[in-house]
Design a protein around this nucleic acid. Structure first.
Lengths: 131, 131
DNA sequence: CTGCGACTTCAAGTCAACTTGAGGTCAAGC
DNA sequence: GCTTGACCTCAAGTTGACTTGAAGTCGCAG
């Protein structure tokens, strides 16, 4: 069974040592124990950190992620909330699509200012304002 | 030509008055003038705020958005940076897709804890860790 | 046994993006 | 002419997510 200390976990995940310590402090990341003072992390820690990073990128707050991960027994999960959250992410995906279209468009568009370009306004209106 | 004051703009965009004032303060949102003390906003303001909100959702900082919008002449835009940013958003979209799959999966999965479920680990590994 | 490097704690600092509060201005309606 | 409500400014406070710094603890190499 592979065991890391915090520096190695930091190297493997690309997350700063201070951040990992902070995650530990707020109960988001749990070490499997200590050797002397040093936190020891088990083989799952790497995946767990990856999961945290992913959730962060998806816009979850650390508090939400904590709740999400701390639920030891999945039977207690608020499934409806999760599904709603999934829908929310779908909307976010669509918005990001719009944003990418906008960026690609402005990279090519010769109009003087963005808001003057009808194509720009159209992308924005279609993708950015609907419910 | 339609003109709003700040309260109406707030109502129409769903953005708080204090936030709009803050945006004005940092030069992100420009009023077309004042009537007495009151800021007056032109008809484009609504779209402009929508654009700001969209950029925010896409993860741009207010500083970046300011730069993006303040570039009066589009010829000066850093097109390569924009295209790179578009790629970055594409990656983000893929990550969000993974996140949605994870959420949908955990909403159904009977495993005791997420990290124990092989399917969960697989989704995470395929979608969440690659370069 | 001495020093080095990687760890530790704890308090305080930082940054972005706002929000809140106190005290003031102004136009419209009664 | 006075009140009301929506606006104003400016300073200070808040929140989330860290980072930094000072001072201390290990264990291993020379």
């Amino acid at each position: 069974m592979k065991i890391f200390d915090i520096g190695e976990l930091a190297d493997r995940t690309g997350v700063a040592v201070s951040t990992l310590r902070y995650y530990d402090e707020i109960g988001l990341l749990s070490s499997i124990g200590r050797r002397g003072l040093r936190r020891q992390f088990g083989p799952d820690a790497e995946l767990q950190v990856a999961l945290i990073s992913l959730c962060k990128k998806a816009g979850f707050s650390l508090t939400e992620i904590t709740a999400f991960l701390a639920d030891a027994d999945c039977r207690d999960l608020p499934r409806d909330a999760l599904r709603e959250r999934a829908d929310q992410i779908d909307r976010q995906i669509r918005e990001l699509g719009t944003m990418r279209d906008l960026l690609v468009h402005v990279a090519d568009c010769p109009a003087r200012t963005h808001l003057e370009c009808p194509k720009f306004r159209k992308i924005l209106k279609v993708g950015g304002l609907g419910p």
